[in-house]
Design a protein around this nucleic acid. Sequence first.
DNA 1: CGGGTGGTTGACAGACATCAACGGTCGTGG
DNA 2: CCACGACCGTTGATGTCTGTCAACCACCCG
Lengths: 236, 236
Amino acid sequence: MISNDICADCAVRDRALCGSLDDRELLALNTIGQRRHVTRGQTIAWAGDEAVICGNLLSGVLKLVAATADGREQTVGLLYPADFFGQPYAGDVDFTLTALTEAELCVFPRAAFERVLEDHQRMERLLLQRTFESLNEARGRMLVLARKSAGEKLAGFLLDMTARAGASGCQASRDGPVTFDLPLTRGQIADVLGMTIETVSRQLTRMKQSGVIGLPGGRAITISDREALMARAEAA
Amino acid sequence: MISNDICADCAVRDRALCGSLDDRELLALNTIGQRRHVTRGQTIAWAGDEAVICGNLLSGVLKLVAATADGREQTVGLLYPADFFGQPYAGDVDFTLTALTEAELCVFPRAAFERVLEDHQRMERLLLQRTFESLNEARGRMLVLARKSAGEKLAGFLLDMTARAGASGCQASRDGPVTFDLPLTRGQIADVLGMTIETVSRQLTRMKQSGVIGLPGGRAITISDREALMARAEAA
DNA sequence: CGGGTGGTTGACAGACATCAACGGTCGTGG
DNA sequence: CCACGACCGTTGATGTCTGTCAACCACCCG
């Protein structure tokens, strides 16, 4: 049975919301869940549309985007594997959800997922906790967007990405230089940090000239001096 | 019995989370809840402290504040009567909670409240929905903070406050001028919108000179031309 | 009466956006 | 295989919005 295999070989089985369910309970999810592949740049849900789906991100990176009437955009959230997307009990979608990279999703019809939540209080509680975490993160980001300088924003962002890259990056030694690929273009970084492409670029070259980071080319980045980066993330 | 009366004469009984409970269930809350009065400027919970309480706001206005290491501050949320505060299942408090005005709270020990949540799935679901709403609001605010000009921010803020003032303000006619008192000082508005006192003041006088608003004195404000205000809230 | 808080206004500066030009890389198609 | 265009990134010149510093006024309360 194919549907049974969906959860069995799930890459984020232990980290996603579903981790709170036992094997038997997973069967219920299996019957309503569906794998879906999206390509870079593809939009999964448009702000203003009816909220019909929710689910888990299996691989790749997604962004949540808010926009003004005249087209200015702000990325208000980044989603990584094992993150939940969508809003149970919602009417309409509030923020456009788009893939920044190739991505794999596990999608549920919203109504069906709500029924599962009702039967599994533990999962609903887990979702509540995650939502609080997202809220705290969003509020922390508000401070960054409103009060930090371009240099501070970028330093903080790079530290985030470094932590996120984690094991996947290659590092010579503990506390030594770390190199990895940023999953975002300069423009996408600008959207996240509330600045322009040019400012992102300029700040990066400045850090490079200071020896804090290296830019080997392409989307690669080397964190040469993590201490300095942390200092810059908090400096006035 | 005093404790029984707490909910009976609650000003926000029908709008707060507890509205989901029947009379018998309210007894459980009554035994753990406690009224508390706070004065203007008083802090209810400090960021970094252990999260020991949560509850409902009965009257007044509270703010949630995030701060950088070097003291820059950003108000990341405003709480109005019937709003819930605190974070069940949390470890530490993430954002300092302070009263902007005299305020009345209904406070619960966090651990006890969590037990009530576990027994009342309906209330937990309501809390989940509210948390999603807060998250959406925070994300919307991210767009404002990062991408809107001072004029747009202030126009949007005034529209919010107008909606909030609602019936309490006095208006001559539908769509006519509305006058009410802002519950925030210029400095507090600046903290909310991510700008400075001076810029708030300048933008207000500019709007006054354009005839969009009136500033009768004190903390009062008159919305003379709501259409124009809406235009300004979205203008580039 | 004096000090504190809150508000307004002016002069000035600086950080960042904007506008513009240019180079590199990659994929497609002739 | 090469060429073209699209996308991405960098850098420079310039402008402007808003933050900073400062002075001043009104009001309130002890």
